[in-house]
């Protein structure tokens, strides 16, 4: 059955799914635009053009919406990363593939600090169960592919992926290049600020990690 254009109340599963996707799209757009800012269900509702209570038909509370979106943007990021991998690529190219995907898909790292604060509240065990299973599933796929591409032994992929995600999320915290004009500081300070640029800071550490895994 086709989706009626501009439907007010979803009548079919398809329309329901479309509405759900529209809500997630709106929330994602808000996060992209406001960066670290928290978004409210009210804002999401306004953007979709529905009432707040409609949002709560699809997500029991704000926390479920946040977590569901986090899983979606996480999957999008990992898919983009896997799409950039190919057999025989160098370790440097591999690290670059990761940071390129991270720059293209900023919502994953923007949402990561948010989601840790919501897990305690308002999430049912049942919901957490499904969410965790989902995350574990796509992480395993990513790790297996990483092991294959880099020729690592089983078990090294997850360590590498975890190390990469953490270094990436840590590196972005001190990226202040855009906030500072480099003309009123000493060369040493300017150099330090350049080195803490998101991309260079990540790549420098990521290459050490890959090298270490190969050694070990």
């Amino acid at each position: 059955m086709a989706i009626r254009e501009d439907f007010l109340r979803p009548r079919t599963d398809r329309e329901n799914a479309a509405r759900r996707a529209a809500i997630l799209d709106a929330a994602e757009a808000l996060i992209r635009e406001n960066h670290h800012q928290r978004f409210s269900v009210n804002e999401v509702a306004k953007r979709v053009g529905v009432s707040q209570s409609t949002i709560f038909l699809h997500f029991r509370n704000r926390e479920e919406l946040v977590t569901t979106l986090y899983i979606r943007v996480g999957r999008a990021f990992f898919d983009a990363f896997l799409g950039r991998l190919h057999e025989g690529m160098s370790d440097t190219a591999f690290c670059e593939a990761f940071i390129d995907a991270a720059q293209e898909h900023p919502c994953f790292r923007l949402m990561r600090p948010m989601v840790m604060r919501v897990v305690e509240e308002c999430l049912s065990h049942e919901f957490i169960h499904v969410a965790v299973a989902d995350i574990v599933a796509f992480r395993s796929v990513a790790s297996a592919r990483v092991e294959e591409v880099l020729g690592l032994t089983p078990g090294q992929g997850p360590i590498l992926m975890k190390g990469f995600v953490n270094q990436m999320c840590g590196a972005v915290q001190v990226d202040i290049r855009t906030l500072m004009a480099a003309d009123d500081m000493s060369e040493a300070v300017a150099a330090a600020i350049r080195a803490s640029d998101f991309r260079s800071s990540f790549l420098s550490g990521a290459e050490l990690l890959v090298k270490g895994i190969r050694h070990g």
């Binding site: 190390g163 995600v165 953490n166 270094q167 990436m168 999320c169 840590g170 590196a171 915290q173 800071s201 990540f202 420098s204 550490g205 990521a206 050490l208 990690l209």
Partner: peptide, 8 residues
Amino acid sequence: ALINLISG
């Protein structure tokens, strides 16, 4: 690298 890792 270690500071980034622990922050993440």
